[in-house]
Simulated assay, not measured.
Amino acid sequence: MKTILHKAATRGHANHGWLNSYHTFSFAGYYDPARIHFGALRVLNDDTVAAGMGFGTHPHDNMEIISIPLSGDLKHRDSMGNEAIIKQGDIQVMSAGTGISHSEMNANRDKEVKFLQIWVFPNQKNVQPRYDQLAMDESKMKNNFLQVLSPDKNDEGVWIHQNAWFSMGLIEKGNTINYVLKDKNNGVYAFVIEGAVSVNDEVLEKRDGLGITETDAFTVTATDNAKVLLMEVPIK
């Protein structure tokens, strides 16, 4: 098994006042040639948007875009006619495909919204744009990794155009969970949202990330109560 550790403090950072954003991989004004992507995982942004503010209408194409609110409410509107509020416990996906425009605004004027914005390279170009969201069942995450995204529209969670699986776990201190990769040729990027864990003895704290390759399974042990996102993606 090979690993690459990205400590939270080493991420790119941009504070625009209305937006405070941390970038695990190169994005916008942050560029590190050693941190362009992890396989098909291109962007992992940890965003905080001030009350009443947000991203105005802007375009995307040929990218799978996933948003996971961590607190607050995010208002989405797009060129396909979708308008929705996504909140903590939800997961949203857009296949940008041939092209889509959308806006993301803090739905509240009295509190900030925090969310993860994740981009994954698709395995098909110029697909028909699509939108989906669902509420994740956090009761199934207790000391377990719940699948929240897959390549199969009939499988559990949302789906994207890529041989990728995302799983979320709420792990109580002292518990160990084994994760078996769905595709042995993939890698996994583990991101600690809250708390602290060790992954095969590699210690990870809040907002740390660990890229894991050349293995078909690994263990995650909570050294404190933890919330962990696993992103299994193609490496080549």
Rank of each mutant, 00 (worst) to 15 (best):
V49D: 13
A50H: 00
G52E: 00
G52L: 07
G54M: 13
T57K: 07
N62E: 00
N62L: 00
I65W: 04
I66G: 05
I66T: 05
I68M: 08
P69L: 03
S71N: 07
L74K: 10
R77S: 10
S79D: 01
M80W: 07
I85K: 05
K87R: 13
Q88N: 04
Q88A: 04
Q92G: 09
V93K: 11
M94P: 08
S95F: 04
G97S: 10
G97L: 09
T98G: 05
G99R: 11
E104F: 15
E104L: 15
M105W: 11
N106A: 10
N106E: 06
N108R: 08
R109M: 05
K111M: 00
V113D: 03
I118P: 04
W119M: 06
N123Q: 13
P129D: 05
R130S: 13
R130A: 10
M136C: 01
D137L: 06
D137W: 09
M141W: 03
K142F: 09
Q147V: 11
V148P: 01
S150E: 04
K153C: 09
G157M: 00
I160Y: 14
I160A: 10
I160G: 08
H161G: 12
Q162H: 10
F166P: 06
L170C: 09
E172H: 15
G174H: 01
N175E: 14
N175R: 14
T176H: 14
L181A: 09
N185E: 10
G187K: 01
G187T: 02
V188E: 13
Y189D: 08
